[in-house]
Write a protein that binds this DNA or RNA. Structure first.
Lengths: 226, 226
DNA sequence: GTCTATAATATGATAGAC
DNA sequence: GTCTATCATATTATAGAC
């Protein structure tokens, strides 16, 4: 019954310790989020993970392949959570179009929610922001080409904002991603700027703020451009 | 009369070719913007610049020091342009408070304007986004601690939005930076997502879009939070 | 200031014992 | 699947000739 390639996270469920592959993924995500991909050596990484230096190459084939596996794991998790919330919002709207605010919430909540609870998705967002810069070409292409999950949001937003031309919806969704990005990379500057007033402590408050801001941007009056 | 350490950019003005130091800075900015700091070797860099391998260490002392010099050059240029526009907006307001939209324009215009004209500030923004991740600790601290220019904008915005508590102004300004960030890092994803509909071709249109979005976010109705 | 040659080290990857 | 030892290579930095 115990096939070689079980998909489910049987390790965590099974009560005890994770298998090596996951230990490596977790350590890598943490380090790549702190220092970005190229700046972390396999030696530093395997030591932090408490595994042998050769383990990364054995389990993933190469450092690059590890990065891609990491992208994949995070993307699946994040996109699934977003899609579920979007679906629920659509169901609440009874087949109609959910309000912009609910669509935005579905987009924004998963990353923030899991982010600051010791769970992974925060690190995922942080490390993606950096690794987009210094990852291998293959990894960057992946990030730039897998946009299916965002398409769903674009469609939903277009229905909720029928007065906007389609390209305007895309632009504003793009900006919305940028706003989220600011949560994962530049927080220290904000802390400095605000003299410690603004921090990522109160999750509910931060979530509400982001949703307010993004919703307002999406609903901004439209003036024809270019 | 020709002291060793002239501050001004006498080279460009003098009519002809740049001196080695500037050639290196320009090449570094370009490469770091494409591939991020750690991913670019001194060999690749000096070759692209057409200078000797040892030139970086001779002129800057180390690769890290080059990065910091690059940060400094770009920051000075960008902040000066922003400050000038903000001052002009304040003068137009006749000593009173400029409208939010004008403050936003002062914040947003310089980077975009110079960005896509072959000039440098675009590259600067792009490479800062990446280098924040994988630069040396000293460089990151610099980025996180030098916030004086943003303070000026925070103050101006606070006057223009007197109903907002101060920390809310900081948050929204922070989000505004994130929106700008999206112009310099994730454009390929937007192009894919929009099927080529959205691109950085029409500068005026993009500028107007960003200003619309950011202004709407800043002026969003305030609901008390945490 | 520029160049070549090279030092000193760190890196990703792999072979082979267990 | 894990470990040690090591290869082949790339890295930053520097010494010293010109």
């Amino acid at each position: 019954m115990k096939a070689g390639a079980d998909i489910a996270a049987e390790t965590e469920a099974a009560g005890g310790r994770q298998d090596t592959k996951e230990v490596i993924l977790d350590a890598a995500e943490k380090l790549f989020a702190e220092k970005s991909y190229s700046a972390v050596s396999l030696r530093e990484l395997t030591q932090a993970a408490g595994v042998n230096l050769a383990a990364v190459n054995y389990h993933f084939g190469s450092k690059d392949a590890l990065l891609i596996a990491l992208f994949r794991r995070g993307a699946i998790e994040l996109n699934r959570a977003r899609a579920r919330l979007l679906r629920e919002a659509e169901e609440r709207a009874g087949g109609g179009t959910p309000p912009v605010r609910d669509i935005v919430a579905a987009l924004v909540l998963p990353a923030i929610r899991y982010s600051f609870t010791s769970n992974r998705l925060a690190l995922y967002n942080q490390f993606v922001a950096f690794a987009r810069g210094d990852g291998p070409a293959e990894a960057r292409e992946m990030l730039d080409k897998e946009v299916g999950h965002l398409q769903r949001f674009a469609l939903s937003l277009a229905r909720a904002l029928p007065h906007l031309p389609q390209h305007e919806v895309y632009w504003r969704l793009h900006f919305a991603m940028g706003v989220q990005h600011s949560l994962y990379t530049d927080m220290k500057r904000l802390e400095t700027l605000s003299g410690g007033l603004c921090q990522l402590d109160d999750l509910e408050a931060v979530t509400a703020r982001v949703i307010d801001y993004v919703t307002a941007g999406l609903e901004a009056p439209f003036t024809a451009k270019g």
